[in-house]
Nucleic acid binder design. Structure first.
Lengths: 221, 221
DNA sequence: GAATATAATTTTGAATTCAATATCCAGGTC
DNA sequence: GACCTGGATATTGAATTCAAAATTATATTC
């Protein structure tokens, strides 16, 4: 007999949270744009009740601004938001790195280093999309190896909020090379399980990401 | 002409979020206990719609566990939760301290040091309740002085979740003395605006808080 | 023609209603 | 007596309905 394979039944509001969040992150609902309940309900063919529940959750997550009696709008990601978020992400990633050095299994470390090497190959070949995907996976893998779900939740939450900003910024070759060099040092620290060093490398890496993004924002307007 | 004095009209769901959160934090709804929508609705004399919206928000905040088709229950704060939360709080407070050293006005620093001296007086006189209140205020003041609302929100969120645990642990005199000594060093670092040192002191302070709490939990079973 | 006041429409907020699911209990079977 | 089965009851999930507020459109005055 195979697995019981529980039928996945999710409440509508949970489904809507994901769908609407994706719409905002991917820009289908532009930043700052007003969100008409009626419209979205029609689109998903649901009543307003579960949608409104979802909007409350998204408001807490920071994707949506709710104004009493005036409805919801997609939150705009300002430069200030980014410049606030990255130092916090840096602090969290630093902690995650430190904990990962302490708690990760040998297997996990090997897996992360393998991802790293794969990513380096994409960098050499100038393949940006696959590089970015692996980049994400490495950061998530470190977060997971830290064995601290509370920490991981906070990282994911912040990460989601700035993701849109990151998509937009198509990074320069110079910055890309620098990021890759940073990742080399990160991988070194991890394979040596030097928590303090890994923490510091990650913190700096995040700050540099922020500066790169900042510069891009300067250029674009 | 005096102030416009906007009439504070909050949506019901926002009010309910606060009320129910308080009930859980203060133990009026015991950890793990099932939350009957009907009962709470009767108690607050509201319909289920805004209450259910509030429960979704509280679930994301971590105060409530929602099980599909089976309703809500107050989240239990386990030892694991506490031991996860404190290192994260430590990392966030460390960052807050660092940023506060950079961004706080002279006025703010003076105000925090004044709070610190007042707190020290309460410690000398053995007045626990006022000590704890000031302790909270100092940490909040540092968070605010960091000038990073994103960071502050995360701190408040975590702080709220462990508050119940903190209330329970009626600390030993020895640990209290130690905490006061730590606060002296924190105050020193702040008045010198030594960000790195303040960060480290705060991180250590939080970790010690955790250990004190852990010991208490060991005793109580 | 601009500005204000007023009416109509739309949209949000909350209560109610209906449907689906789970829980509880009695009866039956081994 | 323990375990399953089926149905009554209670609770949750979601749609609908009603009420209140905001927005838009229209009319009126200066």
């Amino acid at each position: 007999m195979s697995e019981p394979a529980a039928i996945p039944r999710r409440p509508l509001h949970a489904e809507l949270v994901e769908r609407v969040r994706t719409m905002i992150v991917e820009g289908e609902i532009p930043a700052g744009e007003r969100i008409s309940e009626k419209e979205l309900c029609a689109r998903f063919a649901v009543s307003r009740t579960p949608l409104r529940e979802a909007l409350k959750v998204l408001a807490l997550e920071g994707y949506v601004i709710l104004t009493p009696n005036r409805g919801a709008s997609a939150a705009a990601l300002t430069r200030a938001d980014l410049e606030e978020a990255f130092p916090v992400m840096g602090a969290l990633e630093a902690l995650a790195g430190e904990l990962a050095c302490r708690h990760a299994s040998e297997e996990e470390v090997r897996a992360i280093l393998a991802l790293h090497r794969e990513m380096a190959a994409h960098h050499t070949r100038g393949e940006r999309q696959p590089y970015f995907r692996l980049n994400e996976r490495i950061h998530l893998a470190i977060a997971e190896a830290a064995r601290n779900p509370t920490l991981e939740r906070m990282q994911r939450s912040l990460d989601g909020r700035v993701r849109r900003g990151r998509y937009q910024a198509n990074i320069s070759q110079a910055r890309w090379d620098q990021a890759m060099a940073e990742h080399e040092r990160i991988a070194d620290a991890l394979s040596a399980r030097d928590g303090a060093r890994l923490a510091e490398e990650l913190r700096q890496h995040l700050l540099n990401k922020m500066h790169a993004l900042s510069d891009k924002l300067d250029e674009s307007g």
